[in-house]
Computed example of a mutant assay.
Amino acid sequence: MDVHLKNLFARFHEQFGSGPGLGPGSGTCLMKVEGIVSPFIKSIYRAAGALYRTDPWKRLRPGNLFGLRVGKDSDWSGKKQPFPCVQFVGGDAGDLGFHMFRSENDAQRMTGSRETIWVPNVELLRVTYELESLMFSSNKKMIRSLSLEVSGADRFPVIDVARCSSSGGLQFRTPTLEELRFVYAAMKAISLVHPLLQRDNGAGAKWSRVVYFEPFIETVDVQWPPEMSKGNDLVAVTVSHPPGQGYEEKAISTANQPPPSMRNHPRRRPL
């Protein structure tokens, strides 16, 4: 078999159609991001590697959605969080990585029982951990020329933004510099707080294989590397499960109620 065809077949066998995910990598390369510098890329790869080694896929499945808030809304274009909802995919099968959505509603619409559902005009950012041997040549060259950190088991992160077209196909683009800053803060925070999740043994059917977790919210301070800093060295990142859990509770009147558990309020941890 031709070497190119063998490589293509291996990519599809590794990633396509075997579980949640959007199939093989799109070939995007961070070197093509406007305004990016080498230290920025190295910081992204270090954060991705640190998250990978915490093995969130051991417990988390696509149905376990997380809310994410990085700094203030005014810190971002359009004065809103770029991708405030996160899910991990690949714990059972399919692409090993995580998806970041524009809203919790988008995440729910695209999450099927066994597959990722393609919903027209929904955009998501995805980070997929690919085997180096199956990556596009542009990413291989970047990894070697910059001596980028391996995540584990010969895998490196590939980051792109996917959009499901109205015709049923997929369109991909390279993430912007701002979107990469958001992903960096998300990876740093989630790698620290997801091990704190406590299993809720009373939730769900007894025969279900899905793991449920108790409501959760944590705030950590993430330090920006020099090449990402915009005047502030630290940014507060809040991770919640389910998404928005902590913010909704703040709107509930506490009159004549006992003091709520500290578990339902953000606790700041240094990172």
Rank of each mutant, 00 (worst) to 15 (best):
E149L: 08
S151C: 15
S151W: 09
G152E: 06
R155S: 10
F156R: 04
P157I: 05
V158H: 15
I159F: 12
I159S: 00
D160N: 12
A162D: 06
A162V: 14
A162P: 02
R163M: 15
C164G: 11
G168C: 05
G168I: 02
L170S: 00
Q171N: 11
T174G: 02
P175G: 06
E179F: 10
E179W: 07
E179Y: 14
E179D: 10
R181Q: 10
R181S: 12
F182G: 08
F182L: 06
V183H: 02
V183Y: 07
Y184M: 10
Y184D: 02
A185V: 01
A185E: 13
A185R: 00
A185F: 10
A186E: 11
M187D: 02
M187R: 02
M187C: 08
I190M: 15
S191E: 13
S191P: 04
L192P: 01
V193I: 09
V193T: 09
H194A: 06
H194S: 06
L197I: 13
Q198F: 00
D200C: 03
D200I: 08
D200N: 15
N201R: 08
G202I: 06
A203L: 12
A203C: 07
A203V: 04
G204T: 03
G204W: 12
K206N: 00
K206H: 02
K206E: 10
S208N: 13
R209Y: 06
R209Q: 11
R209S: 14
R209W: 00
V210I: 10
V210P: 01
V210C: 03
V211L: 11
V211P: 01
Y212G: 04
F213V: 07
P215Y: 09
I217F: 00
I217Q: 13
E218H: 04
T219Q: 15
D221Q: 15
V222Q: 01
Q223S: 07
Q223A: 13
W224I: 04
W224N: 05
P225L: 13
P225T: 05
P226K: 11
P226L: 01
E227C: 07
E227T: 12
E227F: 03
E227Y: 06
M228C: 05
S229T: 08
S229H: 05
K230E: 12
N232G: 01
N232A: 15
N232I: 04
D233E: 14
D233G: 03
L234C: 10
L234M: 14
L234G: 04
L234P: 01
V235D: 12
V237W: 01
T238Y: 09
S240E: 13
H241S: 02
P242F: 03
P242R: 08
G244C: 08
G244N: 08
G246K: 04
G246R: 05
Y247A: 11
Y247V: 12
Y247G: 08
E248Q: 14
E248R: 13
E248V: 03
E249V: 09
E249C: 02
E249A: 11
K250H: 09
K250A: 10
